[in-house]
């Protein structure tokens, strides 16, 4: 399977950050969907197009305390979730153990894109070909 068949769902409240991440992942040939809140997230997950990975920022209205992560990992256990968050935002939610990975929000998006590749390889080894080194713009 090619990356153009891998669908990533980005859940982020901040529209500009959401657009930026969409652009970054699209440039890496992923199919990118986005959601601004829990409703949009589950609506996209329940659509006919399969989602392979969710990048979840906990600054959505439901957040961690609202039980969004709990619903996600409980109802869609086969979809890996990468938590994209500030460390201070993380509480002692037991469902944090069920996420595939955590990446601290920073100015460098490559930390996230790198982690997405790692997780996809772990969960879909036959889906993702060995990554060529990302084109560095730095």
């Amino acid at each position: 399977m090619q990356r153009t068949e891998v669908r990533i769902l980005i859940v982020e409240r901040n529209r500009r950050m959401r657009d930026f991440l969409r652009r970054e992942f699209s440039r890496r040939n992923f199919i990118v969907e986005d959601a601004a809140n829990g409703n949009e997230l589950f609506s996209k997950l329940d659509s006919e197009s399969p989602t392979h990975l969710v990048v979840l920022a906990v600054n959505t209205p439901e957040g961690l305390d609202g039980g969004l992560l709990q619903q996600l990992v409980t109802n869609y256990p086969n979809i890996p979730v990468i938590l994209h968050s500030y460390l201070e935002e993380l509480s002692e939610d037991p469902f944090l153990q069920k996420v595939a990975a955590m990446v601290e929000k920073s100015g460098n998006p490559e930390n996230l894109t790198r982690m997405v590749s790692v997780v996809l390889k772990r969960y879909y080894p036959d889906l993702i070909e060995d990554d060529k080194p990302e084109k560095s713009y730095v």
């Binding site: 409240r13 901040n14 500009r16 950050m17 930026f20 600054n59 920073s106 100015g107 460098n108 998006p109």
Partner: peptide, 11 residues
């Protein structure tokens, strides 16, 4: 959050 967005754009 917006600051992080700014940082990302700068990056």
């Amino acid at each position: 959050n917006p600051l992080t967005s700014v940082k990302m754009r700068l990056f």
